[in-house]
């Protein structure tokens, strides 16, 4: 990360169980978390302090989460919002995104996915940094203009699709990327195939990137996704 300030989050969730484990794992991930159990508390907290991001559950006891987000936006709170919901219909997704929420996650979700999306949001928020033309992770180098990748100076023979995949992993180096993130970002699909299509792509890519005798860079986290080693 470009700077070392501790990120501050506001978690708006009424169910204690979820509140507890989210708070614990967010704190574990290095965030400072304030918790609100209902919309009113959330409103007063959010107007008193500028948070880096909000995590808002839609089913609040005193009001609809979407109404809360709308009101906060109206009050000038511009922090990105990660919406959590047990509702699953597309209509709600659209509504949520349309009304200022920046990402949407349906329950149940993988904790790693939540963290990954949160990082995404925060990064988006920090700065629309000038996109680099060159990426480097350990001895893996990607030339984004020439669309060429090399490892230890040795050119890798990647298909265009594989290059895009590797680029996405490099951009998120050190962070977990889930399968659905890959499907959405690399292939532009919001699908959940019940076959291992993504794994096979990663497997192939790994065969080219992590060749014999080299330090393996692409790591699989079972049940969650993948992570490209940072150092």
């Amino acid at each position: 990360m470009a700077y070392h300030r501790v990120m501050e989050l506001l978690l708006v969730e009424d169910e204690l169980e979820i509140q507890d484990f989210l708070k614990a794992s967010l704190a574990d991930a290095g965030y400072e978390v304030d918790v609100a159990g209902d919309g009113k508390t959330a409103e007063s907290l959010a107007s008193a302090k500028v948070y880096d991001a909000l995590i808002v559950d839609l089913g609040l006891p005193d009001q609809d989460g979407i109404d809360l987000i709308l009101r906060l936006r109206h009050l000038g709170v511009s922090s990105p919002v990660l919406i959590l919901s047990a509702r699953r219909s597309i209509d709600d997704r659209v509504r949520g995104l349309e009304q200022g929420g920046d990402d949407y996650l349906t329950k149940p979700f993988a904790l790693a996915e939540l963290l990954a999306r949160l990082r995404n949001l925060l990064r988006r928020n920090v700065a629309a940094t000038a996109s680099p033309t060159f990426l480097r992770v350990v001895d893996l180098e990607l030339d984004l203009l020439k669309r060429r990748a090399s490892r230890g100076g040795e050119l890798l023979n990647l298909s265009p699709q594989e290059f895009v995949l590797l680029e996405y992993l490099c951009r998120h180096a050190g962070r977990v990327v889930t399968r659905s993130m890959l499907l959405a970002e690399v292939w532009g699909m919001r699908i959940q195939p019940d076959t291992n299509v993504v794994d096979v792509h990663i497997y192939r890519l790994r065969g080219k990137v992590d060749t014999e005798g080299r330090e393996p860079l692409i790591k699989t986290l079972r049940g969650v996704g993948y992570v490209l080693k940072e150092r």
Binding site: W187, M189, T195, V197, V200, H201
Partner: peptide
């Protein structure tokens, strides 16, 4: 086409 691109490795596997 995108779908085939996505599924092809798995298929050839």
């Amino acid at each position: 086409r995108v779908m085939i691109d996505l599924y092809e490795p798995c298929m050839s596997e």
